[in-house]
Computed example of a mutant assay.
Amino acid sequence: MRRALFWFYVLAFYAICQLFAWGYMFIKYVPDRKGMVIGEGMIFILIFILGIIRLKNHLEKERNYSQQQNNFLLSVTHELKSPLASVKLYLQTILKRDLDREQQKSFLSNSLKDIERLDYLVENVLLATKLENRSFNLPKEDFDFSSLVNDVLDRLQKNSCKTEMIRSEIEPNITLHADKFAITNVVNNLVENAIKYSPPCATVEVKLSKRDNDLLLTVADHGEGIADEEKRLIFNKFYRVGNESTRKTKGTGLGLYIVKTVLQKHNATIKVKDNVPSGSIFEVIFENYAG
């Protein structure tokens, strides 16, 4: 891509030089049309330069997108290999060593967590692929949203640090008409992100409540927070906060893209706010909720 940009700049420079050269020659041999040549030449140069800038921005955008795709493939490969290697090691240990009942139970429990992690990754990739198809419609049904959120939180609490607290305030018996699988993915992504970007064993707050005619779901963490210039980018496909050389957290860059796209298909909105004194708050609003 860098070589392509280099030759693009060379050709653009050559084209502008040729334009000036032909303009000079035309004025030299037809001096009585000098004003017309200069006027039309300036307009042409302006349009040409604007086209160059537009094309340059497009090429750079494609380069960044290509880089993000490569990072995504590397991340997915790592995310797949890591739990697979872990499960393999646990099972080999169980088979080769004479472990007592409690040790076997512990190893199998850890293997199950890694399998759930793989299942979560595969679900994200499959859902992201489906959402790319604009004609894809999410099948909607009525379900207990309060129970769904509680189930997600219970599962994530079991897989998190033993002293980590997922503090919840879930209003009971809230029914939502939506795609249950997709909404489960939304809640899961938001809470997992909050855990992932929080300090070890920190508190994550999750609230679900009715507000006037709206339904409000908030997920708050106490991590480093998100810079203002990145808040509008984090929902882009493959985008991840920070840069590849300094980023320490695992991920594929699909989670928040899925969250945003699923919510759009449900006529819901999501906002990112700063938490006090540190961290971020993700606020999901189902407007004109009736349930």
Rank of each mutant, 00 (worst) to 15 (best):
T252R: 04
G225N: 07
E141R: 15
G225H: 13
V191D: 02
I16T: 07
K81H: 11
R2D: 13
L80F: 08
L118G: 06
D179P: 13
K96N: 15
T249R: 04
N288L: 04
N193I: 03
L215I: 02
V272I: 15
G242Y: 08
V30S: 13
A227G: 05
V262T: 11
I174R: 09
V272P: 00
E102I: 13
S135K: 11
S66D: 13
K56T: 15
K162F: 08
K96R: 12
C201A: 14
F26W: 05
N275M: 03
N57R: 15
F8N: 04
Q157Y: 05
Q18H: 06
G41S: 02
M36W: 14
V272C: 07
D100T: 08
N110H: 07
V149T: 03
L5P: 00
P83T: 02
P199Y: 05
M25S: 06
R54P: 01
K96V: 09
V187M: 06
L59F: 15
F26P: 01
K180Q: 15
K96Y: 15
E141P: 00
L55Q: 12
G39W: 06
F181S: 12
P83F: 03
N57C: 05
T218S: 02
D274E: 13
D144S: 13
V186Y: 10
T163E: 14
L190T: 01
A227L: 14
R211I: 00
T203Y: 08
I270R: 02
Q104M: 15
G253M: 01
F238R: 02
G225M: 06
Y90G: 05
S278M: 05
S160I: 07
V152E: 12
N275L: 01
S75Q: 07
N243Q: 09
P199F: 02
G23M: 07
E224N: 13
C161W: 11
L256F: 09
N57I: 12
V241N: 00
M165Q: 15
T184V: 00
D151M: 12
Q69H: 06
K196F: 04
K260E: 14
R63H: 11
N133D: 11
F136I: 07
K207D: 14
L19T: 14
V30L: 12
N173R: 09
F44I: 10
I281N: 05
V87T: 10
V187I: 15
N159K: 12
